[in-house]
Design a protein around this nucleic acid. Structure first.
Lengths: 344, 344
DNA sequence: CGGCGGTTGGAAAACTCTTTCCCTGTGATC
DNA sequence: GATCACAGGGAAAGAGTTTTCCAACCGCCG
């Protein structure tokens, strides 16, 4: 009632038992405590309004109830969908999630992991897709190793090649399936908003799309592949640059939905109609963007599920020694932003 | 090197100094340490790969570097925008944010606050808008009091009446300004998707809109006010119910953008054109939804800024004793989803 | 009735820091 | 040269739990 804290010792004294007994009652240890004492302790704890000091527990147990979640940008609906899945898994198990944002700075990822390690976090989910250049990670792999060596677990979403469990979308095949669909529609000349050159996810989608075209005997004009930021504004900007060059493409593939959104805006601003003048397709099937008009043809990824799955992998009871990889297939979702080309 | 942890004691021994000195060097206390020793300690720490144990520090200092953030649903772009602002503020100050989601359960809010308290969190930002019925809070106000009494600070976004700093949008005036604009366009018969009946934010927006209409001598048919969930699907569903009753409205106001999104989808599915057959307006100006077509007329709220501001209030150096309230004005943003009614 | 496995309770060590208190040495002041 | 203030260093006392280890006790078996 005063302004101080109620400690376990006070509870123990109030109940007339030892510290050990009080601890055993209030934090379900393996040891049994007799009916009578158990009752007295819980009554005292309730009466005094006891709330355990989490840091003392973490210190004594050498493990906390924290789960880390590292994303590039929580305002990006791609990441907030994943975050939603991760928090669901974590909260289901009574754990609390700490959210770190990197702003796409690889060093920050390593830094956050160290912080999480210093907090004895149980696990961490790394959701930022990584750059191709492994060395820019600033010792990410090394930091992951330290983290796991100290008893923590790590799971990644959409980042291969790290010493950790991984949930990874099948970007190549998804993009390839999309390409085949678009070719079936009659398209032959494609433009691609390919995102950053060094982003693994972006590159895989480009590659998958490209090789499906090649397999169909269709060439891709290098002038029709433009790189830019992996964001809505990046898509807008890239599209403007593309249009400035006077592209002959009949279909535009943006390697993610948020870029596709920017592209549709740029096309609209340029007076072009989708899909009449140009078909547009994206990748991810971001829930928030499903209400765009025309509806965006895209490749659906179960983002929330992926976050949930990653968290589950990292929080499993007795994990196998080997790092596992869960591959997630994408499903082509056809909506109104794509149509046969005007000439067809 | 081994699999154990490097403790401060090991660093001290390695550097040939006392624990106290090592602590002072590595954690910038008020006390000075001589040049030579300081150098030796930092060198040892670096060489051994020392990483402070955060829970031990929290226990000793009785305060942590954690900042809580409580939202209803992180996948909702309204909350992820706010979250983005909060994390920015927090990370600027070297703090880490723990994210809790309530799924709109008031009790969960209280529960999360207690957890945060047990972690000695510095501050917490409560971003879920609250229900009208104060008593369903499950002791929220009480829990806030305990939290602050223990040295933590609390700030709310969009929740008035709590004993904490508050950043609150001027929902009434924003909605009123929007109403006046729509009346000026020529509308006289309105329908409103009013959200949940017990949600303060929803009610204020409804009231503001309603009173501006009254002031203009315009009545609101109760049949044209439909309540439902504060989500995209809630908006869709409410709109379907509205259409089923055969409304005579020429303009539809949804009390937030995500509901408006659902409304536009429902209208499209019903074969109605926006704004030709019916004008639609929302509230919030969610960034992700700015690319809807037709562009949604709405009231802009600086969501990221609000999150940032709330965090800043809660993290201020020496806060005044009184709880402060920062009111944020909304700005009417006119886009293509609204137009003069067909008859005009 | 002595010994024995199995419970239940408590004392105390451990966990890793921070911070108070005390001691020493130094240069300045009278 | 004695005194003083002060700066820098260390020993040790916390901070609030968990958990190990030991003692006591109970009922049973031989």
């Amino acid at each position: 009632m005063g302004s101080g804290y109620v400690t376990l010792e006070q509870v123990a004294r109030h109940a007339g038992v030892s510290l050990a007994t009080a601890s055993r009652v209030l934090n379900g240890s393996t040891r049994q405590v007799g009916e009578e004492l158990r009752r007295r302790v819980t009554a005292s704890a309730h009466e005094l309004g006891y709330l355990a000091n989490a840091s003392a527990q973490t210190l004594a147990r050498n493990t906390s109830t924290l789960v880390g979640l590292v994303v590039h940008d929580i305002a990006d609906p791609y990441f907030s969908s994943i975050a939603s899945g991760v928090t669901r898994s974590a909260e289901e198990q009574g754990l609390i999630v700490v959210l770190g944002t990197t702003g796409r700075a690889p060093r920050r990822e390593t830094q956050l992991l160290a912080t999480l390690r210093s907090h004895r976090a149980r696990a961490v989910v790394l959701a930022g897709s990584r750059t191709v250049d492994d060395e820019t990670g600033g010792g990410l792999a090394e930091e992951i190793t330290m983290f796991t060596r100290q008893g923590g677990r790590v799971a990644c979403v959409s980042q291969e090649g790290l010493p950790a469990d991984t949930v990874v979308p099948d970007n190549r095949n998804g993009a390839a399936a999309l390409a085949r669909h678009l070719v079936d529609l009659g398209h032959r000349r494609f433009a691609i908003l390919a995102g950053p050159t060094d982003l693994r996810t972006a590159r895989d989608r480009l590659d998958g799309f490209h090789s499906a075209l090649s397999a169909g005997g269709i060439a891709l004009d290098p002038h029709n592949v433009v790189h830019g930021a992996f964001t809505r504004d990046g898509g807008y900007e890239s599209t403007r640059r593309l249009l400035a060059t006077g592209t002959d493409a009949t279909c535009l593939f943006a390697v993610n939905d948020v870029m596709a959104t920017g592209a549709m805006a740029a096309l609209r601003d340029a007076g072009l109609r989708v899909p009449h003048d140009l078909s547009v397709a994206g990748f991810d099937d971001i829930p928030t963007l499903r209400d765009l008009t025309p509806g965006l043809t895209t490749v659906r990824l179960p983002l929330e599920w992926m976050g949930e799955k990653a968290a589950r992998l990292a929080l499993e009871e007795d994990p196998p020694a080997e790092a596992r990889t869960v591959s997630v297939a994408g499903e082509v979702v056809v909506r109104d932003s794509t149509a046969p080309p005007a000439g067809a």
